[in-house]
């Protein structure tokens, strides 16, 4: 599919910015949403200056479900029909803090899960009525199995992945593609506090993979590719053994 007009939600994320630059460089018009107007202005300026891109930005609370439909209507009015919607925002809560304070768990669910589920609902209906397009969201390999080091984050992403799978199933006959994106470690501000290893990928590499997956109509993208095999093995370990592992 060709992407003429894309909506990127959580546009200030490092991965989102890499996707936006790549799309803009190929002439895609963009609608960018994030919670910060100042950041959107900087991102949009860069895309306009470098690629002469057509960019429409709007800042609002992404996780306030009551705002989603109206924001979509404004975007459509400004920029026309959308071919791709990509949900990028997310939050990596500190696991040990989550164990002591449930409020942090709830917050992570609002950002990684509830907000995106509302967006997917609104956008799913839009794409369904349009009868074409691609709806994509960044989940994570962390959602493939609960591990002691980050199971709160993992659970939010698991819920997101499951929702996406159901939506994909529902919208397939309507000609709409739903893409679940599962990055491994990506070198972005979210992981700035982690020690870097060769497993870390650059946001640009992940962005390339995402765009290719959208174009080919893929269902689930592991990026970089080797995470597909790593997670396959991790999923196959019996729980009886897995519970003893330090992961």
């Amino acid at each position: 599919m060709t992407i003429k007009n894309a909506l990127i939600i959580g546009a200030s994320s490092a991965i989102a910015q890499a996707v936006a630059r790549r799309l803009a460089s190929r002439g895609t018009a963009l609608v960018l949403w994030s919670r910060s107007a100042a950041r959107l202005e900087i991102i949009a300026a860069d895309l306009r200056v470098k690629y002469d891109a057509k960019v429409f930005v709007e800042a609002f609370d992404l996780n306030d479900a009551s705002l989603h439909q109206a924001a979509l209507d404004r975007a459509l009015a400004a920029q026309g029909p959308i071919d791709l919607a990509l949900i990028c925002h997310g939050n990596l809560p500190d696991q040990s803090a989550c164990e002591k304070d449930f409020a942090i768990v709830e917050q992570a669910f609002r950002i990684n899960c509830l907000g995106p589920l509302s967006l997917l609902t609104v956008l799913g209906n839009y794409f369904e009525s349009q009868g074409r397009g691609c709806l994509a969201a960044i989940s994570s390999v962390a959602g493939d199995r609960g591990r002691q080091s980050n199971y709160v984050y993992g659970t939010t992403k698991a819920a997101l992945s499951t929702f996406l799978a159901g939506l994909r199933n529902r919208l397939y006959p309507k000609g709409v593609r739903v893409l679940t994106i599962k990055p491994g470690f990506v070198d972005t501000p979210m992981t700035a506090h982690l020690k870097k290893s060769p497993l870390f990928a650059a946001p640009n590499k992940v962005a390339l993979d995402i765009i290719r997956a959208v174009e080919t109509g893929a269902c689930v993208l592991y990026t970089p590719w080797f995470w597909h095999w790593i997670m396959l093995i991790i999923r196959l370990i019996p729980e009886k053994i897995f519970r003893k592992l330090k992961m």
């Binding site: 490092a14 900087i42 300026a45 860069d46 200056v49 470098k50």
Partner: peptide
């Protein structure tokens, strides 16, 4: 490193503004 955005290019006067 993350302050990597171009902000404005004035082609008339040959002025580039960036982070």
């Amino acid at each position: 490193a993350a302050l990597d955005h171009l902000l404005a290019f004035d082609e008339q006067n040959g002025l580039l503004r960036c982070e």
